[in-house]
């Protein structure tokens, strides 16, 4: 009789340990305290990336030949909000972009006024949080000069983008999509409010009449169907408090990864 464990016994122990570990991992990942620890890497990632990037380091730009044949729309592609449907019916003639909150001079801009504002055209790669990428050409009003026109109050630290598309509710009474960025990204030269895509008026599926482009972050930061921009000093008192629709549902506020 040998008291030394058999090979098969050891293998079974390993398998059992592995099973416990895996089911344990599922439970650990739901603990809020553990969640706080793993989420702390977001701040580290933002600081390290900001340190490596120069403030105005550009996202890579591409050639017209690189533009994707199919550019997959993500999120909402046909908002049902009654205010939005009214605007669609008259070809966005009545559309106004409101810029308010912590600004000296609130703005209300028509599409014609936005088209007349300082613009930028760029061919960039759009990276979805799911993992896919598409390349498209965007033309839009640069956000920086618009903010200078409105005059940010010294307390302003973030910009919140309120959108027409609604989630989790009946049209007109659902949760509006919203996003927020800080002033580093707001004044970045590639940050634009796009009204054109691939040389055409911005299609509805991609956020007509106006979508945000924040080229150094993932797609969910780039709010579509933008109706109002609000300058704020904090966003923990807005909606779920995490700075965006998807952020309130667990996604990182800094989406540089």
């Amino acid at each position: 009789m040998s008291r030394r464990p058999t090979r098969r016994g050891v293998a079974a122990t390993f398998a059992a340990l592995g099973g416990t570990l895996l089911s344990g991992c599922g439970r650990i990942s739901e603990s809020t305290r553990v969640r706080g620890v793993v989420e702390s890497a977001e701040t580290l990632n933002r600081n390290v990336q900001r340190l490596l990037q120069r403030r105005s380091a550009l996202a890579p730009e591409f050639q017209p030949a690189d533009i994707s044949k199919v550019f997959k729309p993500n999120g909402e592609s046909e908002p049902q909000n009654p205010d939005y449907l009214k605007l669609v019916a008259d070809g966005f003639a009545g559309y106004r972009l409101e810029v308010g909150g912590l600004v000296e001079r609130p703005l209300s801009l028509s599409l014609a006024e936005l088209r007349a504002a300082p613009s930028r055209t760029q061919i960039t790669r759009h990276d979805c949080v799911e993992g896919w990428s598409c390349i498209g050409q965007w033309k839009g009003a640069r956000l920086g000069p618009l903010l200078q026109r409105a005059g940010l109050k010294p307390r302003a630290r973030f910009l919140v983008f309120w959108c027409f598309d609604e989630w989790e509710g009946p049209p007109g009474r659902g949760q509006p999509y919203y996003e927020s960025i800080d002033l580093v990204d707001a004044f970045h030269p590639q940050t634009i409010l796009a009204y054109e895509m691939n040389g055409q008026a911005l299609p509805m599926a991609h956020g007509a009449p106006l979508r945000l482009r924040v080229e150094r972050q993932l797609g969910y930061k780039m709010a579509k169907f933008v109706r109002r921009i609000e300058a704020v000093d904090r966003f923990d008192d807005i909606r779920g408090g995490k700075g965006g629709f998807w952020e309130d549902r667990g996604y990182d506020w800094y989406a540089g990864i």
Partner: peptide, 11 residues
């Protein structure tokens, strides 16, 4: 290489 933020720093 997959990070859009790092792509701006290291194109």
């Amino acid at each position: 290489a997959m990070s859009p933020g790092l792509n701006a720093a290291l194109p």
